[in-house]
């Protein structure tokens, strides 16, 4: 008998859950125009996947975890984010 799990039952110690990259889910992606951005932080608060953060006073979108939902673009009060086709460079 070959077992893979050392537990008797199907529950186990929770490690840090990093999540799976979701690049493949996306057909549009957000592009941020930093000249328009005033670092208000709403996109960071509103991104459902939690993939936007402020680094060195600059808003950064971690595209690995971006599902392309477009909420950031819709909620940005400065219209600093646009959604572009995933095929575009």
């Amino acid at each position: 008998m070959k077992f893979r799990c050392d537990q008797e039952n199907s529950w186990f110690r929770a490690g840090p859950v990093l999540g799976q990259p979701v690049n493949e889910w996306r057909y549009v992606r957000p592009i941020i125009k930093l000249s328009k951005c005033n670092n208000c932080g709403w996109c960071e608060l509103y991104c459902p996947t939690g993939c936007i953060s402020e680094e060195d006073d600059e808003v950064v979108i971690h595209l690995d975890y971006c599902k392309g939902c477009g909420i950031c673009a819709n909620e940005c009060p400065k219209d600093a984010i646009t959604m572009i086709d995933e095929e575009e460079e």
């Binding site: 893979r4 799990c5 199907s10 529950w11 186990f12 110690r13 929770a14 859950v17």
Partner: peptide, 12 residues
């Protein structure tokens, strides 16, 4: 204090 999660472990 020491969280456990339920489900089928991902190493299957």
């Amino acid at each position: 204090d020491d969280p456990m999660v339920f489900g089928i472990p991902s190493f299957f």
